[in-house]
Structure formats: structure tokens, C-alpha cells
Amino acid sequence: MDVIGSQLVAGVSIGSVLLLVAIGLSLTFGQMGVINMAHGEFIMAGAYTAYVVQQILGDAGLSLLVALPVAFAVGGALGALLEQLLVRHMYHRPLDTLLATFGVSLVLQQLARDIFGAPAVDVRTPSWLQGNVEVLGTVVPWTRLFILGVVVVAVGGLALLLTTTALGRRIRAVVLNRQLAETSGISTRATDRLTFVIGSGLAGVAGVVLTLVGSTGPTLGTGYIVDAFLVVVAGGIGQIRGAVLAAFGLGLLQAFVELSTTASIAKFLILVIVVAFLQVRPQGLFTVRTRSLA
């Protein structure tokens, strides 16, 4: 029972990190279909934003909270730049997009090395996030609960944006039928740009939070990018609730598989399981279902 409790907690914790890195991608890849290999580097940029803000403000607690919106802006700005300069010329050419954004990811990593140096930098954890709390008979660091909290707010905020605001309606409409959206008076160009900016901004937010659980170096993003794509694909393209279920499902799977093996073998097994699952259900957990093509 103790083991099950502790693996449940570990699984939810892994799942919340997975969801955090995947949530932005569920917009740019899931909704728009853009394979942005530099998404991981936007996460990395968010992490360095946390570092820089902390250098400026000093206080770890305040700087963490300030860094969240600042990193959203940094990620969003990088996204706007990438969309304007590269991605928009390559919509519907996934291979070109993949290669070009992979190049951008290498450039961004080098840029981080040039500015901050190759070794990881030190981002301090605020005092109010140090220590542990007991959940289901398991000792859990406060940082892990904080991550879960941020994920809930980010996903909830995104879901509210998409379902209740005018911008959300536009984003969904453009995804569903570009030409019909355009001839309904919606600027698909402006909507694409904004969607990409929001997705990239969420990558920045993820980066801030990841400084609490890992080291902040130039290659931070590469460790997460595959996981992020995995979550979006397994959840079903364009489905945020799919990403949520996939992230926590994969997190729990990993926690329980890890019980009887090592972490890297567990990751490998999960990859195999997801690939096998996609053979049976190529559309992922959820599919868009309508009576007509519209």
C-alpha cells in the first residue's frame, strides 16, 4: 500500500512536469500542426529568464513569481520572431519546418552557451518551497506540489481562454477550417501568430518551473522535447484534455514501471508502449468527431 501510494505520488509528479512541457506544444503542434524543434529551447530560455530575474531581484521567492510572467513574454517574443521569420513560410511543409527549427534550436543553445557559459547556472529555490510535505504516506517536496499548482493554473487558463473568449473562438475556428475562418472575417494570419506566441510563452513558463527540479544549462530543453511531443501525439492532436490524460497516464506508467527496473529502461519501455498504442489508435486518445467534414 505504501509502495502504491508513493508511486502514485511520483507518477502525478512526473506527469505534471510532462504536462507542463507539453502544454505549449499542444497549441503550436497540436492545434497548428507546426513541428517546432526549438520548443525545448524556448523552455530553456524560460529557465534562464528565471536565473536572470533572480540575479536582478536577489530574493528567490519574489523572483520566482516575477519570472513566471516575464518568461511568458520572453518565450512569446521568441515565438513571434520564429513564426514571422521562418514558420509562416513553411506551414504545410512539416519536414522543412522540422529541419529549420532544429537549426534554430542549435543556434539558441549556442547563444545560451555564449551568454551564460556551458556549465549549468544556479537558480536558488525560495525558502517557502524548501522542505517536504506528506501526501498519501509519502514525503513530497513542496517544489513538486508547486509544479502541480502551476500546471493546473496554466492548463485551466488555456482551457478558459480557448472556450470562453473571442480569441479562443478564433483560434479554434482557424484550426477547424482556415478558409471558412478567413471568409468569415477572421485574419488567419494574425490568429496564427497569436496562437504561436501563446504556445511559445507557455514554454517559457515551463522553463521557470523546471529550474526548481533540475539544473539550468544550455541543453535543458533537449531533455524534454521528445517527451513533450510524445504527450501531444499520445493524447490526440488538437486535444488539450488528451494531453492532460496522456501526461498523467505516462507519468503514472513511468512511476510504476520504474519500480521493477531503472529510470532509463522505464523511459524506453514507455516509448515502446506509446508506439504500440499508436499502432492500434493512430489518432491518439481522443479524436475530433463531427457529422460532416466541416
Binding site: 473562438r169 478564433r170 479554434r172 475556428a173 477550417n177 471558412l180 477572421i186 475530433v288 463531427t290 457529422r291
Partner: peptide
């Protein structure tokens, strides 16, 4: 061909345009 935004509700289909 009776095109609409299938995943949006009837009201949302209309709001989408009224938003402008």
C-alpha cells in the same frame, strides 16, 4: 456545402463573427 465550424456550438459559430 453547408460549411460550419463543426466543433463550435451554433451560438459560438455566430459569436465568432459578431466578435468583430
Amino acid at each position: 456545402g453547408q460549411q460550419s465550424f463543426g466543433q463550435l456550438t451554433t451560438t459560438e459559430n455566430l459569436q465568432l463573427v459578431a466578435d468583430r
